[in-house]
């Protein structure tokens, strides 16, 4: 690490801590939300500095982008019910002081644990490198997520599916934008939507050999969907076709795993010759489902426009 990048890293780390402190102590929730989004963008820069471009992409697209949009939307729903945005600023009292001291002690201990790792700690990187030729892809992150530990990813996709079920359970009321969207937003959507679809596809494809993959592609696709919803409010009701798309990614992943098990391999054991194409197939299905998941989380209701329950 050379001196000039050390300064950059220190500034970045300092800014992150400062932003975290500010957004927790602000009483204006709108400002706190904006700071939260800025925090996400800076955090993704920190991941870039840590040589983890995949995580950086996911953080920027999901942590800052989709989550930021969700928080802004939640704030707007709160506003619609009256002045709820002036949160209590965090004042230091005894329990909070004890909690803060505990957390700081834990943080110090964690820092010390990291610093006491043997120099040149490599984790499982040599095992990963040895297995890469049999994984079907070139990007080790994609190999881990979809092949070595694909079972974890399968269950993570299940968690996203459950999030949609949770939204439908709560049956939140649809909340169209407060003002009719102007023509400019329409123009923006028309101009941006096609390249967004292309970029999502590119990220998915690139995941095989470079940073990218299903989650990042889905976030871009979902951003397009959210933008479209803002320009021309639509409804993602709990209807058959919507449920099919939501469950599609998980179903394809699970069925691929089970088919391989019945063909004589083990569950999710991707044969070396077909691993690449199978991963692309699973990721394509997952991307479509995850993108719609994010859109449903944003639009969030189980009723059609007439207010009937369509489920």
């Amino acid at each position: 690490m050379s001196g000039d990048t050390l300064v950059l890293d220190l500034v970045l780390a300092g800014l992150l801590v400062f932003l975290a402190w500010r957004l927790l102590t602000l009483s204006d929730l709108f400002k706190a939300t904006v700071l939260f989004i800025v925090f996400g963008v800076l955090l993704s820069l920190a991941w870039v500095r840590l040589n983890a471009p995949d995580v950086a992409l996911a953080e920027a697209a999901i942590g800052a982008g989709v989550t930021g949009a969700l928080v802004l939307d939640a704030l707007r729903r709160l506003d619609a019910r009256g002045p709820a945005d002036e949160a209590q600023p965090l004042r230091l009292n005894l329990p909070r002081l004890v909690g803060a001291l505990l957390v700081m002690g834990l943080g110090a201990f964690l820092l010390w644990s990291v610093l006491s790792l043997p120099p040149g700690w490599r984790g499982l990187s040599s095992e990963t490198a040895a297995a890469m030729p049999r994984s079907g892809v070139v990007n080790p992150v994609t190999a881990s997520l979809l092949n070595f530990r694909g079972y974890d990813t399968l269950l993570e996709i299940a968690v996203l599916m459950l999030a949609v079920l949770g939204v439908w359970t709560l049956n939140a009321e649809p909340m169209p934008p407060a003002e009719p969207a102007g023509p400019i937003l329409d123009v923006l959507v028309k101009a941006l939507l096609p390249p967004m679809v292309v970029v999502a596809g590119y990220l998915l494809w690139a995941g095989g050999h470079a940073p990218g993959g299903a989650f990042q592609g889905a976030a871009v696709l979902a951003a397009g969907g959210i933008l479209l919803h803002l320009a021309r409010p639509f409804n993602v009701a709990n209807r058959g076709v919507v449920r099919l798309v939501i469950g599609f990614g998980f179903a394809v992943f699970l069925l691929v795993g089970l088919t391989l098990a019945t063909l004589g391999g083990r569950f999710l054991e991707l044969p070396e010759r077909h691993a690449g194409i199978l991963i692309l197939m699973i990721e394509t299905a997952a991307m479509i489902s995850i993108a719609l998941t994010f859109v449903v989380l944003f639009v969030g209701n189980a009723r059609d426009n007439a207010g009937r329950d369509t489920s």
Partner: peptide, 9 residues
Amino acid sequence: VGGWGAPLG
């Protein structure tokens, strides 16, 4: 699962 074996899989 996946045929890799611990610690990789």
